[in-house]
Nucleic acid binder design. Structure first.
Lengths: 137, 137
DNA sequence: CTTTAATTCTACTATTTTTATAGAATTAAT
DNA sequence: ATTAATTCTATAAAAATAGTAGAATTAAAG
């Protein structure tokens, strides 16, 4: 399941994607429109900025805007940025690989192989969903 | 990601699936073989029992055994039993549907539709992985 | 009918993660 | 200088996860 944070991030990106080109959105407006606690949203937008998905302008009349076009931002990207690995266990992850602490011998693990299959299919599906595809109905 | 509990459940089921027919396994043996804290495993086996995946025999020489054959137990089943919904948000779930508390109008939600697509694909993939398929390498 | 060895049940606890909130500092336009 | 925005850091409350403890129950076997 997605965390609230990831859901809010997606909603914020959807909001930004629906604005006119070159429009800069204030946190307050996004928060009100998408029903997200403003202070929480601030953190999320910072994370999105650090993830190079949005840009910001500081000071009066500042705010946030998309750095990439909607069809370059996939659900997989957002998931990885906020909720981490797509794989069901770290040992089956491409980007967040970690050995299972309780696993005696990874090469003998019956689980890992199947989980890597799931990962490939889920990843493919998640890469097929973009901010742009979500906006278009 | 799977919780430890779900991972342990899968490992326990894999252990049971590898035993001879009619063999009854003690919690202690499963715990040692799969490197699972015994007391935690007890709870997990009870959950599996309540989910009608394993049966048990009480008293001396008691223990646990599979109720279904390995190819009838899918990853989706285990996930739902321990980690709940397969969908990324409750509002996109088949078995664990719930309205998003922060969602103003579900029918207007841009997210939901895409998440239902993901759910369908993930579910299909997860139903393709069974305890039996995992045992066979 | 007592001993032994297993499951079953209920409650608790500690840790971690999630979900925020608070407030001061910085930045930029006018 | 004023105003209104982002940025940064710290904190806190709540929920979920992971694991522990111990007593009760059950059944086999002498």
């Amino acid at each position: 399941m997605l965390s609230q944070k990831t859901k809010y991030a997606l909603k914020a990106l959807l909001y930004l994607a629906q604005q006119d080109a070159n429009h800069i959105s204030k946190t307050t407006d996004i928060a009100e429109s998408a029903n997200i606690p403003k202070k929480f949203l601030e953190q999320i937008l910072l994370d999105l900025k650090r993830g190079h998905l949005v840009g910001s302008k500081q000071g009066k009349f500042g705010g946030y805007y998309l750095l990439k076009s909607g069809n370059e931002i996939t659900l997989a990207d957002i998931h990885r940025l906020f909720d981490g690995a797509i794989a069901l266990l770290p040992c089956a992850s491409l980007n967040f690989y970690e050995r299972c602490s309780d696993c005696i011998d990874e090469s003998e693990c019956l689980l890992r192989h199947g989980l890597m299959t799931i990962r490939d299919e889920t990843l493919k599906a998640m890469q097929g969903i973009t901010i742009a595809s979500l906006v278009k109905k």
